[in-house]
Design a protein around this nucleic acid. Sequence first.
DNA 1: CACCACCCATGACGCGTGTCACCGCCCGTC
DNA 2: GACGGGCGGTGACACGCGTCATGGGTGGTG
Lengths: 201, 201
Amino acid sequence: MIRVLLADDENLVRSAFAALLGLEDDLEVVAQASSGAEALAMARAHAPDVAVLDLQMPDRDGISVAGELSTLLPGCGLVIVTGHGRPGHLKRALEAGVRGFLPKTVSAAVLSDVVRTVHRGGRYVDPELAAEAISAGDSPLTPREADVLELAAGGAPVEEIAARAHLSPGTVRNHLSAASAKLGAPNRHAAVDTARRHGWI
Amino acid sequence: MIRVLLADDENLVRSAFAALLGLEDDLEVVAQASSGAEALAMARAHAPDVAVLDLQMPDRDGISVAGELSTLLPGCGLVIVTGHGRPGHLKRALEAGVRGFLPKTVSAAVLSDVVRTVHRGGRYVDPELAAEAISAGDSPLTPREADVLELAAGGAPVEEIAARAHLSPGTVRNHLSAASAKLGAPNRHAAVDTARRHGWI
DNA sequence: CACCACCCATGACGCGTGTCACCGCCCGTC
DNA sequence: GACGGGCGGTGACACGCGTCATGGGTGGTG
């Protein structure tokens, strides 16, 4: 019997996953969590064999939770499930010790299979996502450029970004200009869009 | 036995919902669809008692599907399920004949209860969402302003928006300026953000 | 009919922004 | 030690953009 921890902030989806996994004879959902912090607490309490984590959760990234879990429970298999799979996320997830990564578009049978595969020590990443990740490659942005671009995401004026990043407005514009050029975007807003699509911010 | 149609582009979620509803004795999932068009075809073929539709689907809005279904199968109960519930969506959904509207954050028991309620001819909208919708009110934007604002969403320059909307650049700027003013946003990008949060575009 | 809201357009003003050149500083590698 | 790359900063220029005033056309309402 494989003991599974489920974490997803959308209660309905999480319960539905639990129902789905509950149909399998060899799987048992022993704990559920609706946030990253709760997931860690539950993991500590129940020591599951496999943790299935949603990528987007209100308090923290599913990947950062995975990273912490991999040191906390080294034997625990880690699976990330996500609505919109971005290539950058996949890379970060694998670095965090995640061994299963799949979008919510896959068919139902895949989830339980992946849980079993990961429990056996195997790996599974969605083929389509893997192809995207390879073709997309690494982020061309320097860390600082990514920071500034992220702060520009809300459509804030340069002045505000400068204040929040403790930089001079001119430097902010330089970073944004460089980022836009690297991403082939005509302006920073399109650059934000592109960077988001690739999971680089 | 209540016969249910399920439509959601995320196969995993849809199958999981099917498993969840399948646990209930009085509910039976008779058809599933992964797009709006497919949902309509399935509805025609199976004439379900209740249709559970995801708001976001690749080809078309779940609400527009609902609108078509309400004329196609007047007796069919309509339920919309959504990840991020926007007040504007709720209003549009109710106008389209939808009688159940709930975010994916609700607990598992609610979904099957809502299906039953809607089948009996009752209504259910998530209380939190309803409160937001009431406090938010109607969209202050004129139809044209909403159009232009939507085209501005991708961070496109004014020139491009003008070309795509068959307008003069000056007119576009006027519409955007008016929209930003109405939404209390310092620029159009923040205006896009605000309008999206309220479901006005 | 007058009135008003919406739509489309033009022109002008001023600020925000994108772009470039150039500066110094730090830290890694060859 | 020289070199290159990332980082922070300045100054200048030109364009995009936000804002406003103004105008004409349309359709619905009192």
